[in-house]
Design a protein around this nucleic acid. Structure first.
Length: 636
RNA sequence: GCUACUGUGGCUCAGUCGGUAGAGCAGCUGAUUCGUAAUCAGCAGGUCAGGGGUUCGAGCCCCCUCAGUAGCUCCA
């Protein structure tokens, strides 16, 4: 007999060699139904595994990430099985579970269309009904290779050949279908109750653009149909928050065919931008930043010196002026270098924090463009901090705190990544190590969790990246802090130390918003276009009930306008309901309805875009309310 | 850039088998003067992304280009 300790601490005795699912069944039939996989002694295993010694057991259901992954991983196998049945010549690549579902990559002569997805979906439903057991078996390397070669699965052969010597090579078989796979899986295909194939897209084999492009089919799977429907609804809902859709509806910006990736900002979008920039200036002034502006076009020599010519050329635009080569800036730093060098600096001046809302142009691949999230010209809320090595830590921490303050203000959740030295880069290993460690140390001092993003640093230094989420949960890098020993060297920056000798300063490149464009996109999606009052392009719409109230409406408008409140009066001969509907759709925070009653006692009838009709109040009371909300930058 | 898909008035979308372009909203004009999410009527608006081809005839079929969407790659 063996003792099995459950999650709640209770201990039960079973025969040695008992299967996990038998243990689960003995706990309860409901649990057995929900069980997808298990953890025995902390190690993930399947319900079909046997237990031979005293163990702890945790049952994994759809509520556990590992349980979800098992279910979806099995779904991916079912997808592959269906595709193999329908199109036997298709070769299999890889098919993992991902955050919200699964995918499988196929090498297929035939291009899968939406219509094919339906056919494949039907075949998958059959496989699920047929309820095959997933049977695991292990083969020695040579036999595994032979098996896959026989089946013509050249991608699998490649995968096996790259597995490490000591790795177990396991396969899973379900009915006639067989796939190289490490597992774990749910016990049978019948466990997949609710799934849907979502879309097809190209994907390079092993994520390398030099390799063949395969066809990737994405899908998702849940335990219950209701969960699937809920997820699909959520996706629909998310589309309504899309900044490209809202940008059009709210008349914030547009991107015209004549300028792919070069956004036009409309008057209402400019209000947003200007508010963000004003706020930015105010906060930076508080933190001891100066502001500069450097030119957009500078000569080729500068870009050679900065290293951009060698490391960033394919992203840059070039032009000629009087036979000389110039480049449009993709970054603000070289201009900032020249600003530093224009005069001699004392150690007493450091750190110098030099900010610039700088418009940069980058040649992004056409397929990468995405609304305001990824464009070909954008304004970075840049700053370069020049300092002594002893000041590095404090300065990094100062920036981290500023990012946190900005993002919290809008209620953004973010995650942090530390990007290390890329292949294409300059400088000594030693410098890189010092810089990387400085960033790490600052993050650890602040107690911030971070992921390491190997090889994703800038060519001149490692960076801390701050990522924000869009409506669909895709993450976008916004803030970044980059520590740089290279540019000061290349540009021979110096400061005079206490002893009168010249020393080399260190420098930080950093942005908080990242790019104003991207930040506005995130902001739009986060608030679904219903911006907090302090940044709303229109804060108040005044709606007179009829023509005889126009005069009072204008009076109120004037008063609010005098207080710098962004207000409009709707003086069209439409019904109140019509004007309200329009203001609601434009997501204006406050509507003031004024009729006979309001004219009489200098009041307004207040309607909130979220809470609806609030009732009548004195104009002064409303002013107090909105001014307070603006002043305190209330999020609601 | 790559793979697949899409492109029709300002916006959202119909358009059958290839037979010569249609709706709603928005706009304009007029009427209406109204109390918390759409008042009524009339008018105007289109080189069907652009170019080429097939055809007696192309929004529809074929080719090229451009742009967009999803994903890959790349990145703020």
């Amino acid at each position: 007999m063996i003792k099995i300790t459950l999650k709640d601490g209770s201990v039960r005795e079973y025969e040695k060699g008992i299967k996990v699912k038998e243990v689960v069944a003995s706990i309860g039939s409901g649990l057995l139904k929900a069980a997808l996989a298990a953890k025995v002694n902390g190690k993930i295993c399947e319900l079909n595994n046997s237990i031979h010694e005293d163990s702890t057991l945790e049952v994994l259901t759809f509520d556990n990430e590992e349980g979800r992954l098992a279910l979806r991983h099995t779904s991916a196998h079912i997808l592959a099985q269906a595709v193999k049945r329908l199109y036997p010549n298709v070769k299999l690549a890889i098919g993992p579970a991902i955050e919200n579902g699964f995918y499988y990559d196929f090498d297929s002569e035939k291009a899968f269309t939406e219509a094919d997805l339906e056919i494949i979906q039907k075949e998958m439903e059959k496989i699920i009904k047929e309820d095959y057991k997933l049977e695991r078996f292990v083969l020695p390397r040579e036999e595994a290779i032979k098996l896959m070669e026989e089946k013509g699965e050249t991608y699998k052969v490649e995968l096996i050949k790259e597995l490490k010597e000591d790795e177990v090579i396991s396969f899973y078989k379900q009915g006639e279908f067989l796939d190289l796979c490490a597992g774990p899986h749910v016990p049978s295909t019948g466990k997949v109750k609710a799934f849907k194939l979502l879309n097809v897209a190209g994907a390079y084999w092993r994520g390398n653009e030099k390799n063949k492009m395969l066809q990737r089919i994405y899908g998702t799977a849940f335990m219950k149909k209701s969960q699937l429907d809920e997820y699909l609804n959520m996706l629909e809902e998310a589309k309504r928050r899309d900044h490209r859709k809202l940008g059009k509806e709210l008349d914030l910006f547009s991107i015209q065919e004549e300028g792919p990736g070069f956004p036009f900002f409309h008057p209402k979008g400019m209000i947003l931008r200007n508010i963000l920039e004003d706020f930015w200036r105010k906060e930076h002034k508080k933190k001891g930043y100066q502001e500069i502006k450097t030119p957009i076009i500078l000569n080729a020599d500068l870009w050679h010196r900065s290293g951009h010519w060698d490391h960033y050329k394919e992203n840059m635009y070039f032009t000629k002026i009087d036979e000389q080569d110039f480049a449009v800036k993709p970054m603000n730093c070289p201009g900032g270098m020249l600003m530093y060098k224009r005069e001699l600096h004392s150690y007493r001046d450091l750190p110098i924090r030099m900010g610039e809302l700088g418009l940069v142009h980058r040649h992004e691949l056409s397929g990468a463009l995405h609304g305001l999230m990824r464009v070909r010209c954008f304004t970075q809320d840049d700053a370069h901090i020049f300092m002594m090595p002893s000041q590095i830590k404090d300065e990094i921490i100062g920036v981290i705190e500023m990012v946190d303050y900005f993002y919290n203000l809008f209620g953004f959740k973010y995650h942090v990544e530390l990007s290390t030295r890329p292949e294409k880069s300059m400088g000594s290993d030693e410098d890189w190590e010092i810089a990387t460690n400085a960033l790490k140390e600052a993050l650890e001092l602040k107690g911030i969790n971070y992921r390491i993003n190997e090889g994703d640093g800038a060519f001149y230094g490692p960076k801390i990246d701050f990522h924000l989420q869009d409506c669909l949960g895709r993450t976008w890098q916004c803030g970044t802090i980059q520590l740089d020993f290279q540019m000061p060297e290349r540009f021979d920056l110096t400061y005079i130390g206490k002893d009168g000798e010249k020393y080399r300063p260190v420098m930080i490149h950093r942005v908080i918003f990242g790019s104003i464009e991207r930040f506005i996109a995130i902001l739009t999606e986060h608030f679904a276009g219903a911006f907090p009052v302090w940044i709303a392009p229109v804060q108040v719409v005044i709606i007179p009930v009829s023509e005889k109230h126009y005069e009072y409406a204008k009076e109120v408008e004037q008063k609010l306008n005098d207080l710098d409140i962004r207000v409009e009066s709707d003086l069209r001969s439409e019904k109140v309901g019509y004007k309200i509907r329009e203001a609601q759709l434009k997501k204006v925070p406050y509507m003031l309805i004024v009729g006979d009653k309001e004219v009489e006692d200098s009041s307004v009838s207040l309607r909130d875009r979220k809470d609806g009709d609030i009732g009548t109040m004195k104009l002064e009371a409303f002013i107090e309310r909105i001014m307070n909300e603006i002043e305190n930058k209330v999020n609601r």
